[in-house]
Amino acid sequence: HERALMVNRLQKLTRMLRVHPDPKWKQEQQELIKRLK
């Protein structure tokens, strides 16, 4: 369940980064990718 939330968050971040590349979001995205591996 928590994994699904993280995947959701990651997808949302990816969409937001396409619109507005924010370093903070980029960092969070990298963190999520690490944790999901």
Rank of each mutant, 00 (worst) to 15 (best):
H1C: 15
H1T: 12
H1E: 12
E2I: 12
E2W: 13
E2N: 11
E2L: 13
E2P: 06
E2Q: 09
E2S: 08
R3Y: 14
R3P: 02
R3H: 11
R3M: 09
R3E: 07
R3S: 05
A4V: 11
A4F: 09
A4W: 14
A4N: 12
A4I: 14
A4G: 09
A4L: 13
A4K: 14
A4T: 13
L5P: 03
L5W: 15
L5Q: 14
L5G: 12
L5A: 14
L5V: 11
M6D: 07
M6N: 03
M6P: 03
M6Y: 03
M6Q: 06
M6A: 06
M6E: 04
V7R: 12
V7G: 04
V7N: 05
V7H: 09
N8Q: 15
N8I: 14
N8V: 15
N8C: 02
N8P: 02
N8M: 12
N8D: 15
R9F: 11
R9A: 04
R9L: 12
R9V: 05
L10H: 00
L10I: 07
L10G: 00
L10W: 02
L10R: 00
L10F: 02
L10T: 01
L10N: 00
L10C: 14
L10K: 00
L10A: 01
Q11W: 11
Q11C: 15
Q11A: 14
Q11T: 08
Q11K: 15
Q11N: 08
K12S: 08
K12M: 13
K12Y: 15
K12P: 00
K12G: 03
K12A: 12
K12L: 14
K12H: 12
K12Q: 15
L13Y: 00
L13A: 01
L13S: 00
L13K: 01
L13P: 00
L13D: 01
L13H: 01
L13G: 00
T14H: 05
T14K: 10
T14S: 07
T14Q: 06
T14G: 07
T14V: 06
T14A: 11
R15F: 05
R15N: 11
R15Q: 14
R15H: 13
M16K: 03
M16A: 04
M16T: 01
M16G: 02
L17C: 02
L17I: 08
L17V: 03
L17E: 02
L17N: 02
L17K: 01
L17Y: 02
R18Q: 12
R18N: 07
R18A: 11
R18H: 07
R18L: 10
R18S: 12
R18T: 08
R18W: 03
R18I: 09
R18D: 08
V19Q: 09
V19A: 10
V19Y: 13
V19I: 12
V19H: 11
H20E: 04
H20S: 10
H20N: 13
H20Q: 09
H20W: 12
H20Y: 14
P21G: 06
P21Q: 12
P21A: 11
P21I: 06
P21F: 15
D22L: 09
D22H: 09
D22F: 07
D22A: 02
D22P: 00
D22G: 03
P23D: 05
P23A: 07
P23G: 04
K24P: 00
K24I: 11
K24V: 10
K24C: 06
K24N: 07
K24E: 08
W25H: 06
W25N: 04
K26R: 12
Q27I: 10
Q27Y: 07
Q27P: 00
Q27E: 12
Q27L: 14
Q27M: 11
E28L: 05
E28W: 05
E28V: 04
E28P: 01
E28R: 03
E28F: 03
E28N: 01
E28G: 01
E28K: 01
E28A: 04
Q29M: 14
Q29C: 14
Q29A: 14
Q29D: 01
Q29S: 05
Q29N: 01
Q30A: 09
Q30P: 01
Q30K: 08
Q30F: 04
Q30C: 09
Q30W: 09
Q30Y: 07
Q30H: 07
Q30L: 13
E31S: 07
E31G: 03
E31N: 06
L32S: 02
L32A: 00
L32D: 00
L32G: 01
L32I: 09
L32C: 00
L32F: 02
L32Q: 00
L32E: 00
L32T: 01
I33S: 03
I33D: 01
I33E: 03
I33M: 04
I33Q: 03
I33L: 10
K34T: 11
K34D: 05
K34Q: 12
K34S: 08
K34M: 11
K34W: 05
K34L: 09
R35M: 11
R35F: 09
R35E: 05
R35T: 06
R35I: 15
L36A: 01
L36D: 02
L36Y: 02
L36C: 00
L36W: 02
K37E: 08
K37R: 13
K37W: 10
